[in-house]
């Protein structure tokens, strides 16, 4: 089965391009100390706001630091926050969606109204309240994004569970006396995996944009640690004298998000061929 999925995915050209681009960005972020051409933190007052040239490919910032190196290091923070936040929201979303979809009845009604509620409050506002109350920072950003992002996942999981609930193999397992936890983990979740993976991919992209947006507002990861968002904020400040900072800083966010969206599309088509064209 995995062989087939992989083959179909590889035939999806944009998804492959997205995958390659993303792999490069992720690898660069992981091996930042080895691949960044210059020291991302060392200030060089004699060399501030230099336009891109052969030594500083993307130019230097207002403190004379190499922009490319800062983007590579910034990828660490941005990708890590995006990934962890997605993980947290998936755990919450899968738990709530599973319970609602599996048990049905009053529990489902209550959980889904809770989901609707979180869906209708603008997520960014809730995040801003949380950050205002507890102060910004790496873990706060993960927590805040994770805590408000789960409703979409919960909806996807519940919808899948509803479909699976009436499948013959579930009835068979129930007739054999399978416990609820066995049913959920062995029968329901594996069969809900395809849409869940797609959902997680798309959410990772959204979480990265949100993180960048929060650090742009100065409410995410805090300097001197570079993140894509605060590189962008700095670039905006020096837009007239050093436009390359904001330009290159944003290009990386954009490519990353675009790649995730492409991969999500490719995964959707390859995991469930019946959905192609929808």
């Amino acid at each position: 089965m995995y062989q087939e999925v992989l083959e179909r995915f590889l035939r999806h050209k944009v998804a492959v391009v997205g995958g390659v681009a993303l792999s490069i960005i992720i690898l660069a972020a992981i091996f930042a100390p080895y691949v960044s051409p210059h020291d991302a933190f060392k200030q060089d007052i004699a060399n501030t706001r230099q336009p891109p040239d052969s030594t500083n490919l993307f130019g230097t910032d207002a403190f004379g630091r190499d922009v490319l190196s800062r983007i590579i290091w910034g990828g660490r923070v941005s990708l890590a926050i995006g990934f962890l936040a997605m993980l947290l929201s998936s755990v919450i979303g899968v738990t709530i969606g599973s319970l609602a979809g599996f048990y049905g009845g009053g529990a489902e009604w209550l959980l889904m109204r809770l989901t609707d509620m979180f869906y209708s409050i603008p997520a960014l506002l809730l995040i801003l309240i949380l950050v205002a109350v507890f102060g910004p920072g790496f873990w706060m950003t993960v927590l805040a994004i994770g805590l408000v992002f789960w409703p979409a996942t919960a909806r996807v999981v519940r919808a899948e569970f509803l479909k699976i609930r009436s499948e013959p193999y579930v009835e068979a397992a129930q007739a054999l006396g399978a416990s609820p936890s066995r049913l959920i983990f062995l029968h329901f979740l594996p069969n809900a995996m395809a849409p869940l993976i797609v959902q997680m991919t798309l959410q990772l992209a959204q979480a990265i944009v949100l993180e960048a947006g929060l650090s742009y507002l100065g409410l995410g990861a805090q300097p001197p640690f570079p993140s894509w968002g605060n590189i962008l904020a700095e670039g905006h400040m020096h837009l007239r004298t050093a436009p390359w900072i904001a330009t290159f800083g944003g290009v990386f966010i954009w490519i990353t998000v675009l790649s995730f969206n492409f991969i999500g599309d490719g995964l959707r088509d390859s995991l469930d061929p019946s959905l192609i064209g929808r």
């Binding site: 944009v209 962008l232 905006h236 837009l239 330009t247 944003g250 969206n261």
Partner: peptide
């Protein structure tokens, strides 16, 4: 539709200013 959806709004704004 694809590219527009993937634009981080804050970056697009900054680029338009530029």
């Amino acid at each position: 539709a694809y590219f527009g959806m993937s634009f981080p709004p804050f970056w697009l704004g900054i680029m338009l200013i530029l």
